[in-house]
Design a protein around this nucleic acid. Sequence first.
DNA 1: TCGGATCGTTCCACTCAGCGATACACTGGC
DNA 2: GCCAGTGTATCGCTGAGTGGAACGATCCGA
Lengths: 251, 251
Amino acid sequence: MPADLSTVLGKAMAILHSFTVHDPVLPLAELVRRTGLPKGTVHRVARDLVEHRLLDKTPDGYRLSGGLFELGMRASVERSLLEVAMPFLQDLYERTHETVHLGIRDGAEVVYLVKIGGHRQAASPSRTGGRMPLHCTAIGKVLLAHGEPGFRAEVLTGALERHTPHTIVAPGLLHRQMGRALETGVAFEREESRLGLLCVASAVLDADGTPIAAISVAGPVGRFRPEAHAVAVKAAAAGVGSVLSRQRGLT
Amino acid sequence: MPADLSTVLGKAMAILHSFTVHDPVLPLAELVRRTGLPKGTVHRVARDLVEHRLLDKTPDGYRLSGGLFELGMRASVERSLLEVAMPFLQDLYERTHETVHLGIRDGAEVVYLVKIGGHRQAASPSRTGGRMPLHCTAIGKVLLAHGEPGFRAEVLTGALERHTPHTIVAPGLLHRQMGRALETGVAFEREESRLGLLCVASAVLDADGTPIAAISVAGPVGRFRPEAHAVAVKAAAAGVGSVLSRQRGLT
DNA sequence: TCGGATCGTTCCACTCAGCGATACACTGGC
DNA sequence: GCCAGTGTATCGCTGAGTGGAACGATCCGA
């Protein structure tokens, strides 16, 4: 995790990664503390980063700049996926009026490419560009179910971190849920990542059945019945999958 | 535009900026050509960038990695704006079923923070994270109208690049449109950036009237009547503005 | 009003990270 | 076979980058 601080790039990355969602703006001294780099060094590197539009300098510290946002939006995989999926996600949102996610797998985590919701959306821990473990999210579970059996076993036998009292940490139970997910095409999550949050997800599959991404609908305990949206989510995922494999075919 | 190639960071940025929307994946040799750097250097820096998850290495070249996407999504200004605005953009899309944009100003250009649309969306040159000139887009014009008079004059007297036969390059005409935009609260664009594309936009204003961003609805010539959506766009922008200034007040 | 703590900024002599010319390996086209 | 184009590995040289130290500004609590 700690980048190589002996190279310039390592230092730069250490500085950029010091920023989190909760600390959008950090003063120089705080960057020094988090990176462990000498003050003079941080000062110089930060100045260079500002010049390259990766950081902004504000009266009370530095913050990640818009240049970084623009650059990130050029990442080809996530961008093309996003462009193809957006219309389907819109349809899904309009049909359900609940929080809609699109996520991909990276390592043992889900990365959310987008989260769309209305004014009254359930408080969920997810964020566009954010990460969550595979085992306690609907998207994660459905991706795991369609993934390599070897990898699935690896994750299931690994440390299954508990997020709420409902988080499933029993490999056996999880394994059975995977099986059902493969049969039905959807996976559920019931307050496993956040209390009060329910979720249904379905996988976007390539022509040969490889999981590319997954789509989910989430809502609060009470008014929200995940089963009711299973078909809609499955349809959306299938739609994205078919467009995707079609446009790959003719390239 | 050409970064300082004498520093490591400059080289890294030069490599990252070699990628465009049209060239999502570039082989080493092409990076050498675009950056003008020696082969050995590019090879080494690219390897470092891969280690830091800024680049991916594929069988036929490098491409911008998901790590960059995640990092970009932490840029505080654009992210918080996006989170606040999303519900209003959703409402707007649902009401119009046309392409909806959220954009901010940077220099003499608009940067699109998000573009949402359905299956049948008008072919527009805009992209999430992309840029367009101020003078030929609805978002740009309405931002310019609410901006500093000095800056407006500067842009109007500068080079007004022609994008289509309808692009307005006469400073006087543009100036009059700004005036009307200030009165009515909305700006229009009629095939000024792309043939066949119409657009209405309204500005998101801070409590003191400073323009923060702008929202627009775009559609194709024919079925689309921009005037019909003026009120809806204005309402959406006002909604975002009020939430924004409220949450700034209590911080 | 004054010390002390913490902040950001600047300076400068040392040195090792980064450099890039050169050489090598592999591939496909002719 | 040859050649033109790739990507990869090597290796002394050197200046970009380093970071300790010193400086000035600001903000407290005493």
